[in-house]
Design a protein around this nucleic acid. Sequence first.
DNA 1: TTGATAACCATGATTTCCCATGTTAACCCC
DNA 2: GGGGTTAACATGGGAAATCATGGTTATCAA
Lengths: 161, 161
Amino acid sequence: MIFTGTFENKVDGKGRTSVPAPFRSIITSSPSKELALFPSFRYNALEGMTFDMLAAITQQSGASEVNIFKAAPNKFAPLLRATHRMHIEETGRITLPANLLSHASIATTAVFTGEGHSFLIWSPEQFAQQAVSDIAPVTEANEGFIVDFAAAASSVQGLSS
Amino acid sequence: MIFTGTFENKVDGKGRTSVPAPFRSIITSSPSKELALFPSFRYNALEGMTFDMLAAITQQSGASEVNIFKAAPNKFAPLLRATHRMHIEETGRITLPANLLSHASIATTAVFTGEGHSFLIWSPEQFAQQAVSDIAPVTEANEGFIVDFAAAASSVQGLSS
DNA sequence: TTGATAACCATGATTTCCCATGTTAACCCC
DNA sequence: GGGGTTAACATGGGAAATCATGGTTATCAA
């Protein structure tokens, strides 16, 4: 299941916001039915994915292995420590923790963007700023991506268009 | 079950502290419903996990075998000797033993951090000093981690979400 | 008896759950 | 295709449960 699209929702005084319905159905149909939410490494935003996805990634990388005697710190530790495990309530909302709200500079409005296996939550200002730099005309810098994307798209079978 | 997140709780004069609710539910839903607590080998902190997890580790490594006649020291012996088996009381608290409190330099406040299959208990000072708890923008220092994370994420297969 | 530990009771604050409402989008029948 | 009906969704507010934490009583050992 792939997160796609952009949605803008309100954040109330309690920090509550509705998870966009298409995202919600992905999460609630996952085994744990729960959400991993953490500060994005790349952007001034929050990143979310199914908790199962996060667990799979950490397991796959050995990050959650129990290395009692190992001297070296677990390099995934900062991620695990910063990750909130969240439950989506019946009406489709989550409560964004205060520290994450301030990390992403979110006050009364949150912009959700699908990013494939994960999604991001932005303040409108941060999103607008980033979107400008992400969406650019074809240049030497992004030409490679466009070609790759076209190649991948053409190799996908069974699509109606 | 994966321990994630960071929580700060009070420690009273008797050494009592509340186990953060998300951690508590993992422990109380384990078969033994009990907790293994021991000094961390890595940090100036305490490490905890379900008692079943510790048992599984020692069994898997053969550390719990009865070697009455063997002269060679059991490498798990120091760990097993230092481990306290603890019961979480009805109200969700544990009493941290005095020797563990002093090992971790904990006085009136304890910081709990999820580390995957285990969690750590720090003094606020030790945590602030040791943990790079803030996930910073991309820099040379954390770039390696980000690449690893991306690689792990992209290699996760067969997820229903 | 005394000191320590563990179980029990009490409480304020926070969080979560549930109900209610307006609005939008989908659907269906004519 | 138009109009009306229904369902889904986002959002506000309040009630109830959970949680962290302080204090008190029981239990046990030295």
